[in-house]
Write a protein that binds this DNA or RNA. Sequence first.
DNA 1: TCCCGTTTAGA
DNA 2: CTAAACGGG
Length: 541
Amino acid sequence: MSLLKSCVKNPAVGDSVVYWMRMEDLRVHDNRALARASAQAKKDNIPLITLFVLSPQDYIAHDRSSRRIDFTLRNLRSIQSSLAKLHIPLYTTSLSPRTAIPSYVLSLLREWNATRLFANTEYEVDELRRDIKVCELAQKEGVVACSFIHDKCVIPPGDILTKAEKGYTVYSPFLRSWIPHLTPGDGKEDPLACAPPPAENPASVREHPLYGKLFDTPVPDKVEGFAFLDKDEEERIRTCWPAGEEAAQQMLDRFLHTMARSSQMGAVDPLAEDPTRNSTKDTRVGKYKDARDRVDADTTSRLSPYLAAGVISARECIRATMELSTNKKQKIDASRDTGVGRWVQEIAWRDFYTHIVALFPRVSMGRPFIEKLADIKWESESSEDHLQAWKDGRTGVPIVDAGMRQARAMGWMHNRVRMTAAMYLVKDLMIDWRQGEKYFMETLIDGDLASNNGGWQWSASTGVDPAPYFRIFNPYIQSKKADPSGEYIRYFVPELREVLGDEIHQPSPALADRLGYPRPLVDHFEARERAIRRYKNPGQE
DNA sequence: TCCCGTTTAGA
DNA sequence: CTAAACGGG
């Protein structure tokens, strides 16, 4: 798979090498394009310059959340200071319209007299088009060589194909093929190898007439149109999700080496705890197999925001996991149904969905993977009200409402609740899954096109390897399994704080009325029948 | 990465 | 009586 090729061979050595950082690779450690750019700069004995171009128009077009934009800026600040220690400037600027970006980047390269550009590939359609344009322009000028490098996935799109050389569209054979790729073949490079850290620029670059002033450009405080609602929201989100590679490493460490707290309380400050180290299998990852579906305890990795923004690499996650096996005889087996196995398989899901977007781009252009399901009849009557109620967490189904309120409060949801809330929107309320996909992107801090689209198309039964249309979640059963203590619901739905016991999962209308909690928008069993009927005959009532 | 009604096995 | 097993959606 090489949509993007190096466009100019062996350009003359210029005065600098440029690494162009994007929203999905916000790190210094284990960053392939950065490492390659640095190696080239070292070889040519010229300085390395790094660049980030904010693109508000893209953020609007892609439904980026203010949380994600703020997270990007905070991480950029952290990166700027890490790079400054190596005398490497990070020049951050903002540009619209987005169509102007390719020529603008070329003009910067000209200004900096750079003849080589390195970047990690983004697989979304608009981003690929942008990069192709950059290549075309570079080719026309004939002085700049562009290198776009696979870095997002553990195993790059195109490397995992069926015998017929097609992309896998079912997860389990994909996984079977993915796992062996983790171990290096004979004489081959280790796919999990850590990219070398960038080398220092000579300190003199700070005095350079062109590059010196780049150190003085601060990362902007905000992007127009992506402000937090208020100070309170800003502080809450920033406490939940501290920026920087160190925070990401700590989050991984917390998951692999520390014990889970049994309570949801304090969950909005994940790093605040005393990390109780444990040498046994009582770690979060060790208990992941059984505990992962519990939402009333802090049992998951919570790495999704860091992975989505590339603050930590997926490779690093796998590497650190493999190192858990102290005796080399007992290697980590990623295919096992164990805590560690399931965790590695979650990273494989991330690769899977990214490969799908790269190989079948139409899924991300508003099309269902299963085309005949494009004709499903969605509710139009009262759907505006229902959609708003779903977003606000007042559907009258406690587990769904708790999840939706968690999304608003933290910019993050437990995956089990994502599936439950998504399935409820699509199958119970019968609202177009693209509406839900959009809202998740607008609200969550970990919004990633591939994973989000993959998850929604799974719930809507329209995707690759989807939930069969008749396998509709019963939200009340999901609630009892995921939140047996009821603590999660009580935490995020204060109206129900006094309700103890199983009634919290499905309060009677009388109790709901008394507590000022909404009654269910629809009857689950009727809605279920309706969904099955419509899915059976797409295009009909 | 299921739900549900029904049947069947076993205490 | 309860839990597992089963088949259809």
